[in-house]
Simulated assay, not measured.
Amino acid sequence: VFIVDGISSIGGNEFLTDEWNIDIAITGSQKALAVPPGLAVVSVSPRAEARFLAQSASYYADLKAHLKSARKSPAQTPFTPAVPLFFAMQEALHMAAEEGFAARRERAAKQAESVRSAAKALGIELFPQTNENSHYSNTVTAMKMPEGVSDDKLRGGMKKKGVIVSGGQEQLKGKIFRIGTMGVCSSGDLLRTIQTLELILLKEGNIHSCGVGVEAMSRVLDS
């Protein structure tokens, strides 16, 4: 059974469930779909369904029960649904359809490229490094913490200026930071993020002047 974690990729990167013979694909409402957190979206192939255990190890996460309810007319959930979140999901999908799913992926790809371009201009190393068998995501860009700048100074300083970027987790905590380019993220959001990042780097003595990151990002966004 081929299971794919598509939490931060579905909706922002090309994802061909049937063509790639993916048996179970999982994403969350709060990522590229741009819905408030609270819903899990799971795709299940007939091959995966045939492998389900007769007795689920979990009561509420029993996929057999969810599939049984979903096949009713009208479709239902086996337990009380988060109705406002389903309406939010419906509206988010309408918004994505209006923009065009391919157009949204292309926008995310250009925005991610612009973040990488800004990082390069500022001398910030991307994380991890790619090779011929890998490539960077369209929905989130991870970067190493600049030399001599702590997580608290960088992310904490940006937060004080009204811009929040994510940090690393587990063994990467304090070593990397991440900028998202998913959902309804706008070019203006990203330009403000890089502008704020430059102000922090200038304050910490990591760069001598502001503007090169914003300029590099603008060139990509305007291309």
Rank of each mutant, 00 (worst) to 15 (best):
Ser186Met: 07
Gly188Lys: 13
Glu198Cys: 08
Gly188Thr: 12
Ser186Asn: 10
Leu197Phe: 03
Val184Ile: 01
Leu190Met: 08
Gly180Met: 06
Val163Met: 01
Val184Trp: 02
Leu199Ala: 15
Gly188Ser: 14
Gly174Leu: 03
Gly188Trp: 12
Thr193Trp: 04
Lys161Gly: 00
Leu190Gln: 05
Ile176Thr: 10
Ile176Phe: 08
Phe177Ser: 04
Lys175Glu: 10
Ile179Asp: 02
Ile194Gln: 00
Gly162Ser: 06
Thr181Ala: 10
Leu172Met: 14
Gly167Leu: 10
Val165Glu: 05
Thr196Pro: 02
Leu172Tyr: 13
Val163Glu: 00
Val165Cys: 03
Gly168Phe: 12
Cys185Ser: 11
Gln195Val: 04
Ile194Asp: 00
Cys185Asp: 01
Ser166His: 06
Ser187Pro: 09
Ser166Val: 00
Lys173Ala: 04
Gln169Glu: 14
Glu170Arg: 15
Asp189Ile: 01
Gln169Trp: 13
Gly162Leu: 05
Asp189His: 11
Thr193Ala: 01
Val165Pro: 07
Glu170Pro: 08
Lys175Tyr: 04
Cys185Ile: 11
Ile200Trp: 12
Glu170Lys: 15
Thr193Leu: 01
Glu170Leu: 15
Leu197Lys: 02
Gly180Phe: 02
Phe177His: 06
Phe177Leu: 10
Ile176Gln: 05
Gly188Cys: 02
Gln195Asp: 14
Gly180Asn: 08
Gly188Ala: 13
Leu190Val: 09
Ser186Asp: 01
Ser166Cys: 00
Arg192Tyr: 00
Ile200Arg: 14
Gln171Ala: 14
Ser166Ile: 00
Val163Arg: 02
Ile179Tyr: 04
Gly162Asn: 09
Cys185Leu: 09
Val184Gln: 02
Gly183Glu: 08
Glu198Met: 07
Leu191Ala: 07
Ile164Asp: 10
Asp189Gln: 07
Ile164Leu: 11
Leu172His: 12
Ser186Gln: 11
Gly167Asp: 05
Glu198Pro: 08
Gly174Gln: 03
Asp189Ala: 04
Met182Ala: 11
Phe177Ile: 07
Ile176Ala: 07
Arg178Ser: 10
Thr181His: 06
Gln171Arg: 14
Lys175Gly: 05
Glu170His: 15
Glu170Gly: 11
Gly167Val: 06
Leu191Phe: 08
Ile176Asn: 08
Leu199Cys: 15
Glu198Leu: 07
Ser186Ile: 06
